[in-house]
Design a protein around this nucleic acid. Structure first.
Lengths: 328, 328
DNA sequence: TATCTTTACTAATACGTTTTAGTAGAAATA
DNA sequence: TATTTCTACTAAAACGTATTAGTAAAGATA
């Protein structure tokens, strides 16, 4: 169905080169006569010629594609983030190949391999744990890499993120300021660096304020199955709790569902979320949170990656985006 | 950095064909000796050979990529849907190239063009309005197409969807059953067929039940800027309202924010949403809804598209997925 | 009129694969 | 020993594009 340059050339009795040059607006510099140029243009238009991007990329070495690797394209942090990224790249004529790791490192490795094979021109990555080797591999292949949201300090790459420790401390201080004297922290059991940073800031806060730390680590791989139950049990066993700090919004949502549902025993102390959610401001009571500025996060990621692509891989740098505490 | 088959062949003093055959596990059928096969395999492993997927696709005519075109990858319907789709295709060794149209037909056309150029093997599309011509174009290019969520009856393609009219009627009956006698419908002003079907079912219900229709069409392109205000004004002008039916969840969220916020005038009649949302069951009062079974929707889409890819384009068919009314 | 320029193109090569037809040498057959 | 059949490979063409070096014909120069 789709005609190739070769066929078009034959049908017009000209060479492939001529057709290619005309199509790529190089007719003038190749001294193709206006008359022939127009003839080719008209024919190309008439048959609805569509270049084969694969062949084009093979010949030019440019795929005009970048890879975006997130944890879960369906969640309320990465989804909207991905939309910003997609739009920003579209403006620069790049397409985005996404994939979700679901936190599984083997998935992540497979995804990276296939993206390298597809010759993406750059990768934007929210890494899983144990991905250091592959991050190096990407760079060794000469593909620009920008890591965001979380990072392992061991690998030297451009890294765009918020200040987790600082933000977490602000959250603790907020809870204190509204009267919580015994609030606990709910996090996951996996070693994601951003989660560790948030936890450690809480622990530091406890130490300085003579508050006994109350920690719950929920099983990341089995949140849906066990989360609710574990959380309810833990809350019941800790009657002194007068507030909860969740290290991410999906945990907070889980918490809301587990602790505020039905009539039974409800826990109506303040809950605070790291990461906002579109419905947090109409819940009752409302949920305060640390808000990651998705748009500027995306803008920075895209800007840094485009620069690496255009000007070659440069000295790795940290890019810190500041957060906002939304008190509701 | 990355070695090609050609280089590997030279370094081993064998032909490119040999290397290619070995890599593709065709050594035996090509009578390559075990000894040579192992030598090649070992070397390939040692240098970390990674095939160039572009070249491969060009040669084989298979890109192992499918295109997914949604309205907004960041929203709570398409995001989770995309995750299912991605996972299902990954199992079959396909990768997914997503893009968001944001409801803009020109965006949609550009996206389709570039996907065709990238030689996707199939397209899964939630169309915008005015996309009939391009849907035909896809098929003329010989690329299998499955349309979901909404469709224009004019184009004959495989179409996976829920029964919007029927579901909408169920919603109306539910509202009636809980005592609403004067509920209104909030929808958007664009002509998306699924929205029209939902609206028409409401109008039919009104007629049969001698209920005066109360309709609000919010401007799709300027929801964020004007939606809240328009909705508040309309609600205030219609004091008889005793319930609201929103034709999609983002409208319902907008409604919740506009009508239940702050102390001022609050409207505490029932609100009903077409499409569920992860927080609807902890709001107070809870939000009942029509739930589209995302997973089976995704499964059907993927199954139908894979069949088209494997067995060739077939007679278009409608595939209807049933919804669930979640009364809360 | 012999040489140099310019004009308007085209031939050839390359990108990195896959695939099919072909081939030299060894072994088997007659 | 001449022919056939295997064995173990390789050469060549193809996919659809971009690019560079080359060329024939016409015009300008001396």
């Amino acid at each position: 169905m789709a005609k190739s340059i070769k066929e078009i050339a034959q049908e017009l009795n000209v060479s492939k080169s001529t057709v290619s040059l005309v199509i790529n607006h190089k007719a003038e510099q190749a001294r193709i006569s206006k008359e022939l140029e127009n003839r080719v243009l008209a024919y190309v238009e008439k048959v609805g010629y569509k270049p084969n991007a694969l062949a084009k990329s093979l010949a030019t070495g440019r795929s005009n594609t970048i890879g975006l690797i997130v944890e879960n394209i369906g969640d309320s942090f990465f989804g909207p983030f991905a939309l910003y990224v997609e739009e920003l790249f579209r403006k620069k004529n790049y397409h985005v190949l996404y994939s979700s790791t679901l936190g599984d490192s083997q998935n992540a490795r497979d995804i990276i391999d296939s993206m390298l094979e597809k010759k993406v021109e750059g990768i934007l990555l929210a890494p899983t744990v144990d991905l250091e080797e592959y991050q190096r591999k990407i760079l060794e292949y000469g593909v620009p890499l920008v890591v965001f949201d979380r990072n392992s300090p061991a690998v030297e790459t451009h890294y765009v993120h918020i200040d987790n420790g600082d933000s977490s401390r602000k959250a603790c201080e907020h809870l204190k300021s509204i009267g919580c004297r015994n609030f606990g922290l709910v996090t996951i059991d996996s070693d994601q660096p951003q989660m560790l940073a948030r936890k450690n800031a809480y622990l530091g806060f406890c130490e300085e304020n003579d508050m006994e730390p109350r920690l719950l680590h929920l099983p990341y791989q089995q949140l849906k199955q066990k989360g609710t139950q574990l959380l309810r049990k833990w809350a019941a066993e800790n009657p002194a709790l007068d507030g909860l700090f969740f290290t991410t919004n999906y945990l907070c949502i889980l918490g809301l569902k587990a602790l505020r549902s039905e009539g039974e025993h409800t826990f109506d102390f303040p809950m605070f979320s790291f990461d906002d959610h579109e419905l947090f401001d109409i819940l009752n009571p409302k949920i305060s949170c640390i808000q990651q500025p998705l748009e500027s996060l995306a803008k920075t990621c895209v800007k840094v990656l485009l620069k690496e692509i255009d000007q070659g891989i440069s000295q790795p740098k940290e890019h810190i985006i500041s957060t906002k505490l939304i008190a509701r």
